[in-house]
Design a protein around this nucleic acid. Structure first.
Lengths: 221, 221
DNA sequence: CAATTCAGTGAACACTCGTACTCCGAACGG
DNA sequence: CCGTTCGGAGTACGAGTGTTCACTGAATTG
């Protein structure tokens, strides 16, 4: 009933995808808040009124784009982290996977990087929610490693979020750099991740606790 | 001749500032690419045509905003890093300074975070240039510390850039979180910085070199 | 004290925009 | 097979946009 063809529903999905693709193409050189409804439909080859059959706003279209881009990525990083090998090897693999995905779908990631802090509220929230899910997944994967013995859940989530944020940072750096500087960006991203890995290995050595105390009595002025 | 009052030039600067302020106010809820010229002049209390006496584009206005926000910050972080104290103390101070500045001028930093990867090319480039200058300054400050013995210039710049990127990340996290969660964000930012500091202290211990080799022979597939 | 510069005005231009209508015709369900 | 559903087309409207042009009048200059 739901997954059968249905000529009509099929065509609807087709033009919906055409709208998404056209929007993504236009968003390569502008941001969502300046993207016009008519502009999208013109690029997609349909009339402006047809847009309303699929999305209420350009904001709704943006949310759909977020899920198209990030929704299919869940479990990927966690899978990479769950692989065998020492820490440096896994760092290299992670960066490689990111670089490959960004290289394969530049427009999608440019959109995410641009709208993560963009002017459209719902889209920002959708991206934040997806990235938080990533952070949780990474934290969970990290927690199952032997190297995470003695780590609190909060610290694991902190580390997972750090990795995710760094991933996004690297992705947008790759996009800003262009193919000729890709090597240098990858090289630097690896080093930063390695720095974090080293810090992680020695995390429990120095000044582990007593953080809350400092937190509760900060210099007010 | 140049720095004397001049009633006329004074008034011109005044309305220029009015335009900048009005724009910043409007940019709190939208991004630059969707900011209209008329919208700005209306909020500033001048006619649309008066805009052209000060800026060619809204893009040019954006660049001016970038320099207003980031231009006055140079040397600040470097000064903090040059202070006395152990590494953890400096980390706390840095985060505190960032939080204070973001709290004092939220709109400015929201603008920077939003337009860093936004849809307006010249503004993106202006922000990137300023942030790179920050990275250089931080790297320079780090290089003069005893703890940086044996570090290559490239690694220092990597670390400086990392700190700067983290600063921007923290700033936008503070803005996204709102005052009620500010504590938690500050707490997490501190921990991340501490993680990096620990990694920095042990950077030269493990697998320092042979990075170039791996770089030249990456897995092509 | 003229002459001139120039920041800001006000009206008009030719657009694009989002949205509300009516209408068509192919796919659908009984 | 026939009535219904519904994705999409076409038209029209009011509002808002960037930019132009000739202008005014106070500050500046010699």
């Amino acid at each position: 009933m739901s997954h059968t063809a249905g000529i009509r529903q099929n065509q609807k999905l087709k033009t919906r995808q055409a709208l998404l693709d056209a929007a993504l193409l236009l968003l390569e050189h502008q941001s969502l808040s300046s993207l016009g409804l008519r502009e999208v439909t013109r690029a997609a080859g349909v009339t402006p009124t047809a847009f309303y059959r699929h999305f209420a706003d350009t904001a709704a279209l943006g949310v759909a784009l977020v899920e198209e881009t990030l929704g299919s990525l869940h479990g990927l990083i966690a899978a990479v982290l769950a692989e065998t090998g020492d820490s440096q090897e896994r760092v290299d693999r992670s960066v490689e996977v990111i670089a490959r995905h960004v290289g394969a779908q530049p427009a999608h990631f440019r959109f995410i990087a641009r709208e993560q802090h963009g002017g459209v509220g719902p889209v920002r929230e959708a991206i934040a929610a997806q990235l938080f899910r990533f952070a949780e997944e990474v934290a969970c994967a990290l927690g199952q490693e032997p190297g995470s013995a003695g780590w609190s859940e909060e610290d694991l989530l902190m580390l997972g979020g750090f990795y995710v944020d760094h991933m996004v940072m690297t992705a947008s750096a790759l996009l800003d750099a262009g193919p000729e500087n890709e090597r240098a960006v990858v090289r630097q991203a690896r080093r930063r991740l390695r720095l974090v890995s080293i810090g992680r290995a020695h995390w429990l050595d120095e000044a582990p606790a007593r953080d809350g105390e400092l937190d509760e009595a900060p210099a007010r002025d």
